[in-house]
């Protein structure tokens, strides 16, 4: 598993390019990342195409990405967070009631229908646990734990001190583990498997 995890991580950690990237180049390279991030934040699948446009339009208005600022991904994450938060405040739509047919996250590397089912359940548990976090903690958790970004890059991208990233991550891990524990306990297929031991982030 460790090897697999390493592959996942390395494929998602892109080196900071030394070139300026305009909105189109950013879209080509990072539309998937932004869509994943928005969905994990809790965006409605049907809203994702529209939110994507808004994110990259803001990126365009800002003049694109220049390498002195974070990484393209964490830089876009900050814009995405803002756009998502704005939309949420305005729509006040309950995410649980949303129709997520349009754009979704689907499990990869699936070899059988049963494995697909298991992975979908795993995704649902992770999303439910993420939904229990505050948006700020959720963003840090997603970027660090699922996207493999470094704390420094997250701090630069989101414009917060790295100490804040650590404290949010620490708190997010604790909340995530509690929520995940509950979900595992409720899940028939995973009953009996607890998850109390979570390594804490450095505060």
């Amino acid at each position: 598993m460790a090897g697999t995890m390493k592959t996942v991580r390395s494929s998602k950690r892109e080196a900071v390019t030394g070139e300026h990237l305009d909105a189109e180049a950013l879209y080509r390279a990072h539309a998937d990342f932004v869509a994943r991030f928005l969905l994990r934040l809790g965006a409605n699948g049907q809203d994702v195409p529209d939110l994507l446009q808004e994110v990259f339009l803001v990126a365009h208005r800002r003049g694109g990405f220049t390498p002195d600022r974070a990484k393209p991904t964490t830089w876009l994450a900050e814009i995405s967070f803002r756009v998502f938060s704005d939309r949420r405040k305005k729509s006040r739509r309950k995410l649980e009631d949303s129709d997520t047919e349009s754009v979704t996250l689907a499990p990869s590397n699936v070899s059988s229908p049963s494995e697909r089912t298991e992975k979908r359940q795993a995704l649902a548990r992770v999303q439910s646990a993420l939904d229990s976090l505050t948006p700020e903690k959720r963003a840090v958790f997603i970027l660090y734990e699922l996207e493999g970004e470094s704390c420094d890059s997250i701090a630069q991208g989101l414009g917060i001190p790295v100490g804040t990233v650590y404290s949010r991550l620490h708190s997010a891990r604790r909340d995530f583990a509690r929520a995940h524990d509950r979900l595992v306990d409720e899940s028939p297929s995973s009953r009996g498997v607890g998850s109390s031991a979570v390594a804490g982030a450095r505060a």
Partner: peptide, 21 residues
């Protein structure tokens, strides 16, 4: 040190692809 169920779920969540975009 993290229990396998959580690591397994996180791995599944990290290995997703975007569908329908």
């Amino acid at each position: 040190s993290v229990v396998a169920s959580m690591r397994g779920d996180l791995l599944s969540a990290a290995e997703v692809h975007v569908h329908g975009l």
